[in-house]
């Protein structure tokens, strides 16, 4: 019996090692690539090279990398705050309050998840031009600030919340906003952390909509920069790889910073 367990352990580890190798390999190649020249990358060189400094100089001198990084951080940061605020409140409202229209409205919101973005793009673009918001970061943020998926996500994780706590607070005379911010949010920290990571990554990686509404070089985001660099008769692969490394760092940092909460959030915050 014990032996069997040991043998299956070996296979389990073997399997996990292979899977983690497959997961880690692109990252390895990306980092290695950022230290090599385009020719070395094309030739399939898999070891660290000596061109990191050169690539670094090209990236930060020829392209406005720092500003573009700040643009992405600004858009993603503000988007996350708005998504947490709006999505959190909406999810809370849908779950905790009673109303006859509630479920119909909720169903309607969920339906909007089924409309592909491509069909919304042209009308949205027209609205944004009418509002004079073309080529502003606000145009990117406002569209991503309300997400039906996040409302759905919040509501689902709020289902098990013991409403007795809220009622007790109400009896003690706390207002609705105070209950939400001072009692509810702190106890659902991990749900909000999970939502923050998810929406940050979505916003950080968003591509199509920023492409359509952002017009000038100064407003660009990292995804647009990387895409621009790769479209070339002779692409500078080393520099592109480095740009991808730089663009990946914030997501990695945020993920590791919130990792514990993220896992908890996925499991559910409050247990009765």
């Amino acid at each position: 019996m014990k032996r069997n367990i040991r043998v299956s352990r070996v296979f389990l580890y073997l399997f996990l090692i292979i899977v983690s190798f497959i997961c880690v390999f692109p990252f390895y190649w990306m980092i290695v690539g950022s230290t090599n020249t385009p020719i070395q990358i094309i030739a399939g060189k898999m070891t660290f090279g000596s061109h990191f400094v050169e690539n670094f100089h090209t990236l930060f001198n020829n392209y406005d990398m720092l500003r573009i990084l700040m643009n992405s951080l600004k858009i993603s940061g503000i988007s996350v705050i708005l998504i947490l605020l709006i999505g959190g409140m909406a999810g809370y409202g849908f779950q905790m309050y009673k109303s006859n229209l509630k479920e119909k409205l909720y169903g309607f919101f969920l339906l909007t998840m089924m409309v592909p973005f491509a069909t919304l793009m042209i009308p949205l673009f027209k609205i944004i031009t009418k509002l004079n918001l073309l080529d502003t970061h606000f145009a990117v943020i406002i569209v991503s600030a309300v997400s039906a998926f996040m409302i759905f996500f919040f509501r689902q994780s709020f289902i098990n919340y013991p409403t007795e706590i809220l009622e007790a607070a109400r009896v003690d005379g706390a207002g609705e906003f105070r209950i939400f911010f001072n009692i509810f949010v702190p106890s659902m920290k991990s749900t909000f952390a999970a939502a923050a990571i998810y929406s940050f990554i979505t916003s950080w990686n968003s591509y199509l909509w920023p492409l359509i509404v952002l017009q000038s070089n100064e407003k660009k985001t990292t995804t647009l920069l990387i895409s621009m660099m790769s479209s070339s008769y002779t692409p500078e692969y080393g520099v592109i790889m480095l740009a991808i490394v730089v663009a990946t760092l914030p997501t990695i940092i945020i993920f590791f910073a919130f990792q514990k909460q993220f896992v908890q959030g996925m499991l559910g915050s409050v247990k009765q």
């Binding site: 673009f125 031009t129 492409l211 017009q215 895409s227 479209s231």
Partner: peptide, 23 residues
């Protein structure tokens, strides 16, 4: 304005299809 080739096409299509003169 520096973009990828596919991005120029995507943007041009959107702006022309939206029939706006802005942008």
């Amino acid at each position: 304005v520096e973009m990828a080739k596919a991005d120029v096409e995507q943007k041009l299509n959107t702006v022309l299809a939206a029939k706006t003169t802005e942008g």
